[in-house]
Computed example of a mutant assay.
Amino acid sequence: MAAYMHAVAKNPGEYQLTGNNCVNFVRQVLLRGGVQSSSAIQPKPFFKDLPGKP
C-alpha cells in the first residue's frame, strides 16, 4: 500500500473526474491491501460502503 502511495506521490498524473481522482486513489490503495470496495464514484457513498464500522 505504501509503495503505491509513494509512486503516485512522485507521479500523480492529471486529475480526471471519472478516473484519476481521490476516490479511485483510495480504492487502489485499499485493493493493494486486500480490501474490496464499492464502485461508487462519490466520496460519501464510497466510504459508507466500506467494510467495518467507523
Results as ranks from 00 to 15, higher is better:
Lys53Cys: 00
Val35Ser: 06
Pro54Tyr: 09
Pro45Gln: 06
Pro51Arg: 10
Gly33Thr: 05
Gln36Gly: 03
Arg32Asn: 13
Ser38Gly: 14
Leu50Ala: 06
Asp49Ser: 14
Ala3Asn: 14
Ser38Leu: 09
Ala2Ser: 04
Lys53His: 00
Val23Ile: 04
His6Arg: 13
Phe47Cys: 01
Phe47Val: 03
Gly19Met: 08
Gly33Ala: 13
Lys53Leu: 00
Gly13Asn: 06
Pro12His: 14
Pro45Asn: 08
Pro12Trp: 14
Tyr15Phe: 15
Pro43Gly: 02
Asn20Trp: 10
Ala2Gln: 10
Ser39Leu: 08
Ala2Met: 03
Pro45Gly: 04
Gln16Phe: 00
Pro12Met: 12
Cys22Phe: 13
Lys10Ala: 12
Ala40Cys: 07
Met5Glu: 14
Ser37Pro: 10
Thr18Ala: 11
Pro54Leu: 06
Pro12Ser: 12
Lys44Ala: 08
Val23Glu: 02
Met1Gly: 00
Gly13Trp: 13
Phe25Lys: 03
Lys48Gly: 00
Gly33Gln: 12
Tyr4Lys: 06
Phe25Ser: 01
Leu50Gln: 05
Gln16Tyr: 00
Arg32Tyr: 12
Leu17Trp: 15
Arg27Ile: 02
Gly33Glu: 13
Gly33Phe: 09
Val8Tyr: 12
Phe47Arg: 01
Gln16Ile: 00
Lys44Glu: 10
Pro51Cys: 04
Gln42Thr: 07
His6Asp: 09
Pro43Gln: 05
Asn11Ile: 02
Val26Asp: 01
Gly52Trp: 14
Gln28Arg: 15
Ala7Val: 02
Lys44Val: 09
Phe47Pro: 01
Pro12Glu: 11
Gly34Trp: 07
Lys53Glu: 00
Lys10Val: 01
Ala9Asn: 15
Ser37Ala: 15
Tyr15Ser: 05
Ala3Pro: 11
Ser37Arg: 09
Pro45Glu: 05
Val35Ala: 05
Pro51Asn: 05
Gly34Thr: 04
Ala3Met: 11
Gln28Asp: 15
Asn21Met: 03
Ser39Asp: 12
Gly52Thr: 11
Val35Met: 09
Ser38Thr: 13
Pro54Asn: 05
Asn21Pro: 06
Ser39Arg: 14
Pro45Ala: 07
His6Cys: 01
Phe47Lys: 02
Thr18Gln: 13
Val8Arg: 10
Leu30His: 09
Leu50Arg: 07
Leu31Val: 03
Gln16Lys: 03
Glu14Ser: 06
Ala2Glu: 07
Leu50Val: 04
Leu17Phe: 15
Lys48Arg: 12
Phe47Asp: 00
Thr18Gly: 08
Val35Phe: 12
His6Tyr: 09
Ala9Trp: 13
Leu31Ala: 13
Val8Gln: 10
Asn11Lys: 15
Lys44His: 12
Ala3Thr: 14
Ala40Asn: 10
Phe25Asn: 02
Ser38Glu: 08
Asp49Glu: 14
Arg27Gln: 08
Gln28Lys: 15
Val23Phe: 03
Gln16Val: 00
Tyr15Thr: 02
Ser37Phe: 12
Ala7Thr: 08
Val23Cys: 01
Gln16Thr: 01
Lys44Arg: 14
Ala40Ile: 02
Asn24Gly: 02
Leu50Ser: 04
Pro51Lys: 07
Met5Pro: 04
Asn24Ala: 03
Gly33His: 10
Glu14Gly: 00
Pro43Ser: 09
Ala40Met: 06
Lys48Met: 05
Ile41Leu: 07
Ala2Leu: 05
Met5Val: 14
Gly33Arg: 10
Lys48Gln: 11
